[in-house]
């Protein structure tokens, strides 16, 4: 993620300017099916989003939102269906898709024996980022960079997840319950980051069991009693 050094950087009340990787992209999934043993949680689910747009996924607990997000991130392989991310006319393969998304989810964790800055520095190296934006992002989201992850509150951990997701200027943000455990300042800051990501041409898919008050023309409702959801 590129965060200009000038401008507001005074913690969460003044969220960072954020510039996503600007490109013309589309992200679509079709006929996605996933079962845990005999229990089918995703049944021929379809959806699409494009540059600057956001797809909202709604559904009750157990409706398969997290499973869908994990499938889209490439962390679980759907048993049927297709996922297609076309970036500037070129379709990304599974590896590029996995590296190109920014994922926030409740089951994303970090190394508890390392500090927040050390964690982000490690992932920056793995991502091959030329500059190390870790400490700057953490400061802008109000996370104490030198505090061990094992000593972070659940709200701070959620802010760290956002920092991890935005670190590499992803073209697609996959957000699973993105504002959980955040206080109002943290929620304002992350909502601003999401808005800036979309304004810069990024895409986002946001899953939540409750109405987050996000404006989007695309909506997908997952209902465990009904199959074949689509947006």
């Amino acid at each position: 993620m590129i965060l200009p050094r000038e401008g507001n950087c005074s913690r969460t009340s003044q969220p960072a300017r954020y510039t996503a990787a600007v490109s013309t992209s589309s992200f679509r999934f079709d006929q996605l099916t996933y079962s845990y043993g005999p229990r089918r949680v995703l049944d021929r689910v379809a959806g699409t989003t494009e540059s600057g747009e956001m797809l909202l996924i709604e559904g009750s607990n157990g409706s398969g939102k997290s499973t869908l997000i994990r499938c889209l991130a490439g962390l679980q392989r759907p048993q049927a269906g297709s996922i297609q991310w076309i970036d500037q006319g070129r379709e990304l393969d599974d590896v590029a898709r996995r590296r190109g998304v920014g994922w926030v989810g409740p089951d994303l964790s970090f190394y508890e024996a390392l500090s927040a800055a050390e964690n982000l520095d490690f992932f920056a190296r793995l991502r091959g980022l030329a500059e190390d934006p870790a400490v700057e992002i953490l400061e802008r989201l109000g996370v104490p960079p030198q505090r061990l992850v094992g000593a972070l509150s659940s709200g701070m951990l959620q802010r760290l997840r956002w920092s991890f997701a935005l670190q590499h200027r992803p073209g697609m943000l996959l957000l699973d319950e993105p504002f959980q455990n955040l206080d109002s300042a943290g929620e304002d800051a992350t909502r601003a980051l999401l808005r800036q990501h979309l304004e810069a041409g990024g895409m986002a898919i946001v899953a939540s069991p409750i109405d987050l008050g996000l404006a989007s023309g695309r909506r997908l409702v997952l209902d465990p009693t009904r199959s074949g959801g689509g947006a």
Binding site: R99, E112, L126
Partner: peptide, 16 residues
């Protein structure tokens, strides 16, 4: 067990 494998899968080449 620490749920860090997902972040590692997203960021690193498996062979690395």
């Amino acid at each position: 067990e620490g749920h860090t494998a997902a972040a590692l899968r997203l960021t690193a080449a498996p062979s690395a």
